[in-house]
């Protein structure tokens, strides 16, 4: 939550490509880059261990549009149409639990490592 603003921390990355979908977490300048895929109305993985300055890219592989939204709505990827993706940067103290605003039963968590 602290220092976390949607404008500064969220980078919308536009359309993704299928070939990138299974890319594992990658380190860059000591910070990891993670990917969470949305498939079959589930976040995969639904629990992810992260550290401040890591980035997390959410990519939607479903037909239905989705979001990844903090449980207190302090951060939000915005609407992700099929094959669209958005990247957030992890900050210390940010809200860990998230869900899909359109399908509230879909839940995930970014756990501090």
């Amino acid at each position: 939550m602290s220092g976390w603003t949607r404008r500064s921390a969220l980078r919308l990355a536009g359309a993704a490509f299928a070939a990138m979908a299974r890319r594992p977490a990658q380190a860059h300048n000591g910070h990891a880059h993670h990917r969470v895929e949305i498939r079959g109305l589930k976040f995969v993985p639904d629990v992810l261990t992260v550290r401040p300055e890591d980035t997390v890219t959410f990519v939607n592989r479903d037909i239905a549009p989705h979001t990844a939204t903090a449980s207190d709505q302090s951060w939000d990827t915005g609407t992700l149409a099929r094959d669209a993706e958005a990247t957030i940067t992890v900050t210390a103290g940010m809200t860990q639990a998230y869900f899909c605003r359109f399908h509230p039963m879909m839940k995930g968590e970014l756990q501090p490592g």
């Binding site: 037909i63 509230p104 039963m105």
Partner: peptide, 19 residues
């Protein structure tokens, strides 16, 4: 395959409607 993908979405709608 399209029907199977659609069914997964519509089952979520059913759960949401139940709530």
């Amino acid at each position: 395959a399209l029907f199977e993908a659609g069914l997964a979405i519509f089952k979520t709608h059913q759960g949401h409607a139940e709530m």
